[in-house]
Nucleic acid binder design. Structure first.
Length: 277
DNA sequence: ACGTAATCCTGGAGGC
DNA sequence: TGCCTCCAGGATTACG
């Protein structure tokens, strides 16, 4: 599932490939994946546009900056893939959009579960878009401080796992990195946010930064569908301590990892290292 | 204002 | 082997 490290890896893998290329045509097989504007308008507006030198990212949103002050905003959700490839590569199942490029290659959007969305917006208005407007700080930015985290924990009466998944709290964490951060901080997912001690908050702050940085360093977690912009898998799945490891021994104490539901989401944790308190 | 639950969608897993 | 049911999961919406 593309979370911050996966989206960042896609950005980095596509940036140098797309820079300076122009979109010559668009095949739109599934119009419903376009969030805005209407499909025919989308095609009309994006055709002929040139990719800028830099791509961007905000939380889990991929920002593809184009000429004439336009930005293509993409959210991959669960199974979305954005692949730069040769035009003669067989079109994989669930390919919903193909951008034809002026070097003869393709940029393809494929998404098995069709949750992902593409949206075209003026670059200047991207930060005000619904979904982006209310995002919390980037976990690797300096504004995501220990003090900020502690203050938010006190303000929000909810379970810590739910809070970590709330993009308005901090942007980019999903189920995998949230569970991994909680394990590294030795905090049970059902603990109430305001109940965390200052020491625990500091540990969680450090753990969030470490797992996100680790995910980026290993080019993302290829648990099932995820690959980068060139179709390559990441390797952070080899460094996961709890996620998808139900019944397997904890790397720290050897006790079996357990799975519970928190706010409707699977949560993997070590019952020994992460006490409910 | 806040929090939780249903919703979308398909492939894979598990039951029998 | 095959059919059926269930489930994963991010963000939006709908509801309490």
């Amino acid at each position: 599932m593309p979370e911050l490290p996966e989206v960042e890896t896609v950005v980095r893998s596509l940036e140098q490939k797309l820079s300076g290329l122009t979109i010559t045509a668009v095949d739109l097989f599934k119009p419903e994946v376009i969030r805005f504007p209407k499909p025919d308008q989308f095609i009309e507006q994006i055709t002929g546009k040139q990719f800028q030198k830099k791509l961007g990212r905000r939380g889990k949103y991929l920002l593809i900056h184009l000429s004439d002050g336009l930005t293509l905003v993409i959210h991959l959700r669960m199974t979305g893939r954005l692949i730069y490839c040769e035009a003669d590569l067989p079109v994989e199942k669930h390919t919903h959009v193909i951008f034809h490029l002026d070097n003869g290659k393709h940029l393809r959007f494929a998404d098995t579960r069709r949750f992902g969305r593409l949206q075209l917006a003026p670059t200047a208005e991207v930060s005000a878009l619904p979904g982006i407007r209310d995002l919390g700080p980037e976990p690797l930015d300096k504004e995501f401080t220990r003090e900020f985290l502690k203050k938010e924990l006190r303000r929000r009466r909810t379970r810590i796992k739910s809070l970590l998944l709330d993009q308005c709290f901090v942007a980019g964490l999903g189920n995998i990195y949230a569970d991994e951060a909680l394990f590294r901080a030795k905090i049970h997912p059902e603990r109430l946010a305001p109940d965390l001690t200052t020491r625990e908050a500091a540990g969680l702050h450090k753990a969030i930064i470490e797992v996100i940085a680790g995910g980026i360093k290993h080019r993302g977690t290829s648990f099932r569908d995820y690959v980068d912009g060139e179709g390559r898998a990441g390797s952070f799945q080899h460094h996961l301590k709890v996620y998808n490891r139900e019944g397997l021994p904890c790397s720290h104490c050897g006790r079996p990892i357990e799975r519970i539901k928190v706010a409707g989401r699977s949560s993997y944790y070590c019952p020994s290292c992460q006490k409910p308190k």
